[in-house]
């Protein structure tokens, strides 16, 4: 008997490859916000659908934005 397959999500295309006008910039937290969870964790490539090259750029941009306090490292505030 065939085991039930997991639902196949739609194959996502990297949005940065599809639209070259989108720029990845650490100074733009509004755009980067899209690639982190509510808690501020970076969303993995398998979920976000980015290609390797753009995921890498997103990741470095988010880390830079965190460094300059444009984005949170975490939303759980330490006491």
């Amino acid at each position: 008997m065939r085991r039930r397959r997991r639902a196949f999500p739609r194959r996502k295309v990297c949005r940065f490859c599809a639209d070259s006008s989108l720029a990845i910039d650490y100074k733009d937290p509004k755009m980067l916000k899209y690639f982190v969870t509510e808690r501020g964790k970076i969303i993995p490539r398998r979920i976000s659908g980015n290609c390797a090259r753009h995921q890498r750029r997103i990741t470095t941009a988010i880390k830079k934005a965190r460094h300059i306090a444009l984005m949170p490292y975490t939303t759980i505030q330490p006491h």
């Binding site: 965190r66 306090a69 984005m71």
Partner: peptide
């Protein structure tokens, strides 16, 4: 002036 993501 902008709000910081965390206190500095």
């Amino acid at each position: 002036k902008k709000k910081l993501a965390y206190n500095v």
